[in-house]
Amino acid sequence: MGIRPLNHLMYVWPYFSNTKLFIMRVFELNGTPRTELGKKACKTMRKENLIPCVIYGGKENINFTVTQSAIRKLIYTPEIFEVKLTIGKQTMKAILKEVQYHSVSDNILHVDFIEVDDKKPILFRVPIKTEGLAVGVRAGGKISLEMRKLKIKALCKDIPSSLTINVENLEIGKSIKAGDLSFPNIQIMDNKESLVVCVKSTRAAKDAAATTEAAAK
């Protein structure tokens, strides 16, 4: 049980800034089938440090439980994992879909998984990361990540744990939109005009520009 590392495959795709993606690692998780449903049954499970879960997408929905300790590393991380889920005698490939938390305590109440088919693409939101010091930042601007995740469509084997965008060539006032990005075997589903990252002007940048302009006269 836990994380089984895969080779971190990196792709560099041509754009005025480089983009990279890292393939998901595999998280192994064991669950126990459950037949008792409803709020009262779920409340009892939580008192025993068990988390009620369900997996959709297969021939039938399967209700099961996992321990708090077993699932924490899957939930409390910005990464996306391919989940090798074993419930009783069944083993299947899944992806974490949704986590429900208590409104006050933030304790985990319920977890939803989706069973994936290697031959069918799925829709998923993948975290975005930036790397590099933008030209515009060196000139006094401020980098602004306008989108935290990109909505993509891909086969499970091609879904990355994160998408990294190199912003070194980004100048003040310039931006990267969803339509500017491209990754192998991945279709970006967000609006092409959606702003992903930009460099905004600051007071310091404006003062520096004014000083440069005055010196040139």
Rank of each mutant, 00 (worst) to 15 (best):
R125C: 07
Q90N: 14
I87V: 06
F22V: 15
K157A: 09
N30P: 00
L145T: 07
L109M: 13
P14E: 09
M147G: 04
T212I: 09
L29Y: 07
N63Q: 12
E60I: 13
L170S: 01
K39V: 13
E98G: 03
H110K: 11
V137K: 01
S144Y: 15
E146Q: 14
K200S: 06
I87A: 01
S194M: 14
I152K: 01
Y15C: 11
F113L: 02
P5A: 03
N166H: 05
V135D: 08
V126L: 02
V197D: 02
S69R: 14
C53K: 05
H102W: 01
M147S: 06
V66Y: 04
K142Q: 04
I55Y: 04
K93P: 00
S201R: 10
E82P: 01
V199F: 01
K47S: 08
S201N: 10
A139M: 13
Y56K: 03
A70S: 13
I87Q: 00
P33L: 07
V54D: 01
G31Y: 10
K174S: 05
L133A: 05
N30K: 15
L37R: 13
E48H: 14
I3F: 05
K39A: 11
A41V: 11
A208P: 01
F124Q: 12
T19D: 00
S201H: 09
T65S: 09
K217S: 07
E213D: 04
T65H: 08
A215H: 10
N185V: 11
K217I: 10
T202K: 03
A139I: 08
N7Y: 09
I71L: 05
K47Q: 10
K192N: 12
I71N: 01
L37N: 08
G57Q: 03
G140P: 02
K20T: 15
S17W: 04
E60F: 11
T35D: 07
T65A: 07
W13P: 00
K93M: 12
V66I: 06
E60R: 13
S162V: 14
F64V: 07
E131C: 12
I152E: 01
M10W: 03
L150I: 12
A208V: 04
V104G: 00
T35E: 08
V126P: 03
S182L: 11
S175K: 15
N166D: 09
Q100N: 09
F81Q: 00
E36P: 03
N185Q: 13
L6V: 14
N61D: 09
I75S: 02
K40R: 13
T164A: 05
K59M: 09
K47V: 06
S201M: 06
L195K: 07
L195G: 02
L150T: 08
N7S: 11
P78K: 01
D118E: 13
L150G: 05
V104M: 10
F124T: 15
I80Q: 06
T65R: 05
G132T: 08
T19S: 11
E131D: 01
I108H: 02
R72T: 10
F81P: 01
L9N: 12
S105E: 05
I71M: 02
N7F: 09
E60T: 15
I143Q: 06
K151L: 13
I122D: 00
E168W: 04
T86E: 06
N191S: 13
A154Q: 05
D112M: 04
S69F: 14
I128A: 00
A214H: 11
N7E: 12
